[in-house]
Structure formats: C-alpha cells, structure tokens
C-alpha cells in the first residue's frame, strides 16, 4: 500500500496523520535518522504498513515546518538526525488521548458489492462463498505472520487487529447467508 499525501480524501488525510503521529511517537524515544524511523515504523506494525523513505522525509519536513520536530546538523554522510520538540510531544499526547472515529475509514467495497447484488436480484450465495474462502485465506496468512512474530508484542497486537477485522467480515458473510436463506424474497428469486 503506497499512500500519496495529497489528501484527496478524508481517508488519505487520516493515513497521513497516522504516519505523522507514528513518527512522533518513535522520536519521543530519542532522536533518529529517517531510515531508522522507517525501519522501526514497519517493525512496530508488523510490516502491515510499509512506508517508502520519501513519505518519511516528506512527513518530517512538514512536521519541521509545523514546529513538531527539529533537524540536527548533517553528518559527513549527509544524514540528518531529527528530534521531537515540546509541541511535538504535546501533539503526540493529544493523539493518544483522542479516540479514532469510524468515519475515518474508507467505505467498504464488499458491503456495497453485496448490497448491489441483492438489489439487482443476483444470486448472492456464490459471491458470499467466494469471499468467505478468500477472507479465510487472508486470515490464515495473518495467523502465519503472527506465529512468526513471537516475542514482539507490538507486531502481534497489530496482526491481532487485522485478524479480528477479517473475522468480523467472515461473521458478517455468514450472517448475510443466513438472512438471505431465510428470506422468502430470496428463495423466490432463486427458483
């Protein structure tokens, strides 16, 4: 997933803000180089959220403009160490205090697809079945990654979050199937 920071949508905006706060949190543990920030960000999120180095530097220069971080001197290899400022610490603390709002998330294509299929009187069962198997394969991959993340609680919790979300989708698909099977309207359509 590569994220552009043009903030075309609320979602892209929220992603940019999350990268920004993630970087602030890493800097709150001490000054770091850009490439270190990238590596540590990915390690904490179990590579669930790959960053490119350009995103890291773009974010750092915006935060420098906003007074949240300050760069040190360039070393002989041209690398710059960044530190968090008082304002940056305050911003990070504000982030941790503020709950995430559901509208920050993108609209779900699967939900729209199923709703459209029901509206169009298509047979929804094969769609549900194919999705259920695909979602289970994804879940299996998350579990494999989780088994490999032994000893890294941050990574494990990120993967657990993805597992719970995939599981919610799976449960919802089962629910859709049960509701549609019970509905006389659907039974009529399938005849």
């Amino acid at each position: 997933m590569q994220i552009s920071c043009n903030w075309h949508t609320e979602y892209a905006y929220s992603v940019c803000m999350t990268i920004r706060h993630g970087i602030l949190t890493l800097l709150s543990q001490g000054p770091r180089y850009g490439y270190q920030l990238r590596a540590e960000f990915e390690a904490s999120t179990g590579a669930a959220w790959p960053l490119n180095i350009g995103q890291v530097y773009t974010t750092l220069s915006r935060m420098e403009r906003d007074g949240l971080v300050s760069p040190g001197e360039q070393d002989e290899q041209g690398r710059v160490v960044y530190s968090i400022t008082e304002a940056g610490l305050a911003e990070m603390e504000r982030w941790f205090r503020t709950p995430v709002v559901p509208s920050d998330r993108p609209r779900d294509e699967l939900v729209i697809k199923l709703a459209m299929a029901v509206t169009a009187a298509a047979d929804v069962r094969p769609i549900i079945q194919a999705q259920r198997t695909a979602t289970m394969r994804t879940l299996q991959e998350f579990v494999r990654a989780k088994r490999a993340s032994v000893g890294d609680p941050a990574q494990r919790l990120v993967l657990d979050s993805m597992i719970f979300q995939a599981e919610a989708e799976q449960r919802w698909l089962d629910h859709c199937e049960a509701v549609l099977t019970a509905s006389p309207q659907t039974q009529e359509k399938q005849r």
């Binding site: 079945q129 259920r132 198997t133 979602t135 289970m136 394969r137 879940l139 299996q140 998350f142 579990v143 597992i163 719970f164 995939a166 599981e167 799976q170 449960r171």
Partner: peptide, 24 residues
Amino acid sequence: HEPRYAAWADRVIFLRDGEIADST
C-alpha cells in the same frame, strides 16, 4: 465456529447442508 481459530489450520473446509461447499 470461530474463524480466528480455524485460520490456524493448513486447510479450512466449509460444510453446508452436509456437503463440502468449499475449502481453502
């Protein structure tokens, strides 16, 4: 009946009305 635990398996089989509807 819990997907999160089924996902530990090498293979997940979905039964519907006594038949294997699908598997991973």
